[in-house]
Write a protein that binds this DNA or RNA. Structure first.
Lengths: 223, 223
DNA sequence: AACAGGTATATCAATATTGATATAGCAACA
DNA sequence: TGTTGCTATATCAATATTGATATACCTGTT
C-alpha cells in the first residue's frame, strides 16, 4: 500500500507520471523506487478512489501530459497515513539470500570474492548518498550541521541511508576478516576461537586473492 | 526472481510448502519473507520448469503433503545464481517514506513521537536477532566469537541484520536529538548551527513528551 | 515533404506479493 | 455418531512490481 501514499505525498505539488518517475530516481531512491508501469496504474486507481484529480495539459517537449493533483480526500488520507505510526514492512536483501546459501559452493574464496564485490557496490552507493549530503550541508567548525531550515525530514531520511549503508560496509570488513582467518586455518582445525575485532577493524585488504584454500566448511548448522 | 532461487536453496533438503513457510518465519525473516500464497505457486512454476520435482506423501497430522526436492537442473540453477555476483535490488522502507513527508503535519512533536515509536520497534527487532546470535555463539574472554564451524554463511547474514538495525537505532537517537534541539529553538530563529554529536551520542531520553512546541518548520528544500 | 533519431509520455504482459479464504484430517466432546 | 475446534495444507483474488514495448511530438537532415 505504500506506493499509493508516497504518490499522495509527492503530489502535494501537481505533477505528471513522467515527472514522478524522475523524483523517485533522483530524490527518494534510497528508500523507495518505482517504474512507470507501476506509477501510471496507481495514479489511475487513486483518481478512481477520488484521492487525486487530473487534467490534461499540452507539453513543451512531447505528447500531452496528464497532470495529477491532490484532492481534499487525498490530503486527508495522506495525513491519516502519516499519523498511523511507523509502517514496519519486512526488509529484503537478495544478496544476503545469496550469501546464506553460499556454503553450497564449498569454497570460501568464492565467498570472499562475493563479499569484496558487495563491499565495492555498497561503497559506491554510500558515496552517492554522501555527495548529496555534502550538497545540502555546510561545514562549520569542522563539524557537519544538521540541515537546519526546511527539509529537516528529508535530510533525516538521507542520514538513515548513510548510516545504514555505512554499517553494511563495516559488516563487509568484519566478514572479510573472518573469512581470511578461516581460510588461513590448516585443514581439520575447527571451532578455534575467532574473536571478532571491534568496530572499525582495519584489517582485511580488499584485493580478491590472498591466501590459499585449505580447509572447507562442512555441516548445516543454521541460525 | 529471488524467491525462486531462495526456494531452490532451501530445498537442498526436501520439504513441503508448509514447512518452507516456517523456515521463512523462523530463520530468514531478517532478509526475506514469503506467504503461502507466494510459496505454492512458485513451487509449481519451478516444477514446471524442471528445477524441482515433487511426490505426495501422507502426513502425520493433516492432509497429504506435496514434498518438493531439487533436480539436477535445479541445483545447477542455484549454483549459477550464487556465482552471478551480488544482486543489488533497491531497498524499501515505508517508515522512511512516512518520515520524508511528515513536514506536512507541521508539528515536530508528531515527528518526535513517530521516531520514538520507531526506535522502540527497531530495538525489539534487534533484541530478537541478538537473542539468536547469543544462542549460536560462545563467550570467550569477554569477546564474542564468530561462529566457527558449519553455519558460517548463515551467521554472517545474521550479523548484517544486527549491525544494520543497530545503526538504525543510532540514527533514531541522532534524529531525536536534532528534533529536540529544533523544538527548543525560539520562534523565528533559523539556520542556527546544529552540530551533530558523533557516534554514540548519549543524549535524548526516550520519553515522548519533553519541551514545548515553539517554532514550526517551513519551506520545501528537498535533498 | 519525408525521414531519422531523440526525448517525453504512457501501456502491456509477466511475475511477485499480500491477505483472505478454503479444505483435509485428527481429537475431543455432546 | 454428529459436532466442534484445531492444526496442517493449500488456493484464490486483489494488488504491487518489473521489464519490455508502444505512441507522440520535436528537431534536424535529406
Amino acid at each position: 500500500m505504500s506506493l499509493q501514499h508516497i504518490l499522495l505525498g509527492l503530489l502535494r505539488e501537481p505533477a505528471a507520471g513522467y515527472d514522478l518517475k524522475a523524483v523517485f530516481d533522483e530524490r527518494i531512491s534510497h528508500f523507495w523506487s518505482a517504474e512507470f508501469g507501476q506509477i501510471y496504474p496507481t495514479l489511475n486507481r487513486l483518481e478512481e478512489r477520488g484521492l487525486l484529480e487530473s487534467r490534461v495539459e499540452p507539453s513543451e517537449k512531447g505528447p500531452n501530459r496528464r497532470v495529477y493533483s491532490l484532492t481534499a480526500d487525498g490530503r486527508e488520507e495522506l495525513l491519516r497515513w502519516l499519523g498511523s505510526g511507523p509502517a514496519m514492512g519486512a526488509e529484503r536483501f537478495a544478496y544476503l539470500a545469496q550469501l546464506y546459501f553460499m556454503d553450497a559452493l564449498g569454497d570460501l574464496h568464492e565467498t570472499r570474492a562475493f563479499m569484496t564485490a558487495l563491499k565495492q557496490r555498497l561503497r559506491e552507493w554510500l558515496g552517492r548518498l554522501e555527495a548529496i549530503e555534502a550538497a545540502v550541508t555546510t561545514s562549520h567548525g569542522g563539524a557537519t550541521e544538521y540541515y537546519s531550515d526546511g527539509g529537516f525530514h528529508q535530510f533525516a531520511t538521507l542520514r538513515m541511508g548513510i548510516l545504514s549503508i555505512g554499517s553494511k560496509v563495516e559488516w563487509c570488513d568484519e566478514t572479510l576478516a573472518a573469512i581470511d582467518r578461516r581460510i588461513a586455518l590448516p585443514a581439520g582445525v575447527e571451532a578455534t576461537a575467532e574473536c571478532r575485532s571491534g568496530r572499525g577493524a582495519p584489517s582485511a585488504p580488499d584485493g580478491s586473492g590472498s591466501g590459499t584454500h585449505v580447509g572447507s566448511p562442512r555441516g548445516e548448522v543454521a541460525s
